[in-house]
Write a protein that binds this DNA or RNA. Structure first.
Lengths: 200, 200, 200, 200
DNA sequence: TATGAATGAGCTTTCATTCAT
DNA sequence: CATGAATGAAAGCTCATTCAT
């Protein structure tokens, strides 16, 4: 990519990245249309390729950027000393919603990337995944297993929670007003329920 | 579609449908490549269109067929009188795994269809959805709410379970041997855990 | 072509030729669909190719056959001794309508062939044209120039008449009942008018 | 269609339209090949569709444009007050030859359109025909019937003339040099002859 | 920096032709 | 003699990418 991208006004940078995330999130790498992106971002075709060389280059950059961005949000929202599983989950949820306030499609974009099947797309994200995985694993290692019932181990509950928050986000209609607030609220409700179910 | 499709050897019909389901499931309607399908099914380009007229026609047929197929499996596996939530879930899981033994991608295909955004694709599946939704709702109405803890109502647990089984299936690597057995096993484990968590 | 075609029942031969003429006449060589032909003739795809090897072979055969057929009709209808231009024209018109009673699209087929632009098609009809051209020229040579006004020479009137009868036929709706009778009638009217206009 | 087409250099616009008219005129809508058009016009496949969306869109645009173009030529060449049938015919002939100097295939294109049988093609030209038909009918109403012989009424002569000029144009070889001059000359000769034949 | 006209490889679809039955 | 399932080259059309301005 062309580093001069960062010399653009922040607002324009975000318009471009937001548009691209949305299109990639909705259509997946292969079917994502650069035409749609430039229309959404109100820029010209040429400019997109001036900064990112290729659709693949753009995809790789966005994935990298999104991962850095959510990592920073994790660092801001997740407290070092906290060990309670559900308190940590609430902090991570806050990190995600904060991120989505800036880039509404960032989580869907990253999750769509997780399910990407296109070989080209996979080739540019493979190595980058490591950083974020490590971050979440570091948090996972802090989980206090004590309050969990014997037969509801933290690993299982953690997986369940991930599936739930992911499935729930996919269902939310992003065209509705306050969709983000509704996601936050609904997610907290699921968190509460699962806490009651899995703590002694 | 051309009804003569059903005059083909059953093995060939299944080869074609299986290949198409796989490609649609992996790529979504828009990016699904008919070239990939015919390569997977070992048939020629022309033959696919001889039977299904268009990619859209094929998609509509497959959706319809898949829905009928899984409906039959539900009727075979789910007993009329059963009311226990988790016993019913186990029966439904058996229906799905039976179906997947025949058409490994049938569940992913149907779930990808649920998230389809392409307007053309939506136009041919919209009306057909009703039948299966009704079937699952009829089952849902039988759920015995009694054994559930007050603060873990069936509806919530049912949603959670759906998200879990769906998310888990998406993660499984279908290239691995015995993936189906591993899915069945893993799913049953999640079911067990959730039962223990939500029953009094 | 396969000579065994002539061993078929005459009715079937005519059904096949009639269907092919119609499709070629309506669509021209290139766009003529063999599928349409076999549907119209109620025969199978394979049979058509069994007898004619290729679309081009069929086209060449039909052109040849049509030319022979109309030549015979000319010999039956056009009297050897007649020299009056308009009487000869009436006889030729009778030859055409007789032919069209058997093969409704024979004239349109031959005229469409005249305007054919497809190089392949042209290659198989080029040499065959000679026979019929010669026949009409032999008739043309008999024309008695005497009754014509000085400034309306027979060559010019002959061309005009050809254009008129051709243009008129193209306009007639072949789906209408009695279209052939209406063509005959209209053509005779044009003949009458032109006679009055060009004879002293 | 994409209105930006008109921002192209006039020469390029005409190259594209001329090529498309030629191919449509020669092959009819269905068999007309877009590949042939772009080769003739020396542009790429994509560009044609960038401006006209589809073959059908291009066809509709060309028909519309051609009709407007020839209408303007009629307005420039046909004098308001003239009522003599043959003088008006000569003016209309001038309009057509002027138009053909710019777009050699414009008349053949429009006449091929008149005989179009493809349902899709018909659907986009049906409503547009009205304008030009009206224009020629307005001219037809001015014809002075007085000089015509009783038994050669204007309507009949008018039909004859139309068939003649049309059939003659179809026969002319457009690859020959000066074909347009030869058409003009030949047409005038036919006009002269018919005048002498039908005027008292 | 920014544009969008232009390209051509690749996709869906059609259709003449083949061949096992 | 007769069928129609099967093929694959070629057609219409899309879209990432380039480049002159």
């Amino acid at each position: 990519m062309n580093e001069k991208f960062f010399d653009l006004r922040k607002e324009k940078q975000d318009r471009i990245m937001g548009a691209a995330m949305e299109v990639f999130a909705k259509s997946g790498y292969a079917h994502a249309s650069t035409d749609e992106m430039v229309k959404l971002a109100h820029i010209s075709k040429g400019l997109l390729f001036h900064y990112f060389t290729s659709k693949l280059g753009l995809y790789g950059f966005l994935y990298d950027y999104s991962l850095r961005f959510i990592s920073l949000e994790f660092q801001r929202n997740v407290t070092e000393k906290e060990t309670d599983f559900f308190k940590l989950q609430i902090q991570m949820l806050a990190a995600w919603t904060d991120a989505m306030r800036q880039y509404p499609y960032i989580r869907l974009f990253l999750m769509q990337a997780e399910e990407e099947t296109d070989p080209e797309a996979l080739s540019v994200i493979a190595e980058k995944r490591a950083g974020f995985t490590e971050l979440t694993q570091q948090i996972a290692e802090r989980y206090d297993r004590a309050p969990f019932k014997e037969d509801a181990p933290v690993e299982l509950v953690s997986n369940i929670l991930w599936y739930v928050l992911t499935g729930f986000l996919a269902e939310i209609d992003k065209k509705e007003e306050n969709w983000l607030a509704r996601y936050e609220e609904g997610s907290l409700a699921y968190l509460e329920t699962l806490k009651r179910m899995s703590y002694r």
